[in-house]
């Protein structure tokens, strides 16, 4: 049963990716902005335009270009970037770890902050503390992540400069690691100087991404917990003499966390999408930053590669969340 569901999801994922590939390929060729027109300086003739279009393979029809590209993708060749003249797959994969590390750190911060707020709010329900938490949540939600980024830069980059404003790692510390998962590998290799430097660079962008998500998690989890606190089994636990903290953490939380888990899965994909603007703001060398450059320069092969990878990430995250939910939810587990 489980295997059938898994295979079905994988098949759906492949169809989704094909759909994304077709749409992206068509859309970026239909929307205004010809990479060759942008590249040619004044004085170029029609013949010069034609020459460069042929050089970049843009002289063929869109369906023809698509099938050439798709044929390459199936064999692992995503084309060559117009701006960097490097293979797209290598470029994208070299930047993916930076974005994943940033997203995961933001998620951890969001869960920690949101979870703490929810637990305190539930523990202190119907008091001024809960009111204060609701106000803080409202503020966190009403400000978009890039504005949080600017506020953080002003506070911790300029007024009290404890964190680094731009980049992923200090130029004098760039490691020669096996992978591009610098944060993870620096721990494995016991390079704690590097780990600290990476954290100093990542904290502000991660926090900017995390704050709105933390507010959402906090609100939903608190609501869920408060509803659970009225259920019979929780009342039974109280009558057994367990402390309020025990009741919340050990009895109510396990059931209340399920809707939050689904939400985290969905929001994580949005969080990865949010890295595009945040990486730009903090000059963080991830996939999002590269995506903006690709769009500005109309680097069609690179845009296609990045979007396809983002789509793959989104579908994978959703798949993992669904499977996790099935594992954690006894009703689904035994269905």
């Amino acid at each position: 049963m489980f295997l059938r569901r898994l295979l079905s999801r994988i098949a759906t994922t492949l169809v989704t990716l094909l759909g994304v590939a077709v749409i992206v390929f068509a859309v970026i060729r239909i929307v205004p902005g010809d990479p060759v027109a942008m590249m040619l300086p004044p004085g170029a003739t029609e013949a010069d335009i034609a020459r460069l279009q042929a050089f970049y393979g843009l002289d063929k029809s869109i369906p023809e270009q698509f099938f050439i590209w798709l044929g390459g993708v199936v064999q692992g060749d995503f084309g060559t970037s117009i701006t960097t003249r490097q293979p797209v797959l290598g470029l994208v994969l070299s930047r993916l770890p930076a974005t994943l590390e940033l997203s995961v750190m933001a998620l951890v911060i969001a869960v920690a902050l949101g979870g703490t707020m929810a637990l305190i709010g539930t523990r202190q329900r119907y008091t001024r503390t809960e009111g204060a938490i609701d106000v803080a949540n409202g503020m966190a939600l009403s400000v978009p992540d890039f504005l949080w980024g600017l506020v953080l830069i002003l506070l911790f980059g300029v007024l009290w400069p404890v964190f680094t404003i731009s980049g992923r790692v200090s130029p004098n510390l760039v490691p020669e690691f096996t992978t591009s998962f610098f944060l993870f590998e620096s721990v494995v290799r016991l390079r704690f100087d590097l780990w600290l430097d990476l954290v100093q660079h990542m904290l502000m962008p991660a926090l900017a991404l995390a704050i709105p998500l933390a507010a959402i998690i906090g609100q939903l989890l608190k609501q869920s917990l408060k509803e659970t606190m009225h259920l019979d089994y929780v009342t039974l636990a109280r009558t057994k003499g367990y402390s309020e903290n025990h009741v919340i953490l050990r009895e109510a939380l396990r059931n209340a966390v399920l809707p939050t888990l689904t939400l985290i899965g969905v929001q994580f994909t949005f969080l990865i999408g949010g890295t595009v603007i945040i990486e730009r703001l903090f000059s963080y060398e991830g996939l999002g930053n590269m995506a903006i450059d690709a769009v500005i320069n109309r680097d069609l092969p690179l845009i296609q590669g990045i979007v396809l990878l983002f789509a793959l990430l989104f579908t994978l995250v959703n798949l993992v969340v669904d499977l996790l939910y099935a594992v954690l939810n006894p009703r689904l587990r035994h269905a």
């Binding site: 600017l150 830069i153 002003l154 980059g157 300029v158 400069p161 680094t164 404003i165 731009s166 980049g167 130029p171 730009r280 703001l281 903090f282 000059s283 930053n289 903006i292 450059d293």
Partner: peptide, 17 residues
């Protein structure tokens, strides 16, 4: 350093980095 956002460039110099 490639700092493409103008606000971040201002912060870079203002903070002395």
């Amino acid at each position: 350093r490639f700092v493409t956002d103008a606000a971040s460039r201002v912060a870079e110099v203002e903070s002395g980095r």
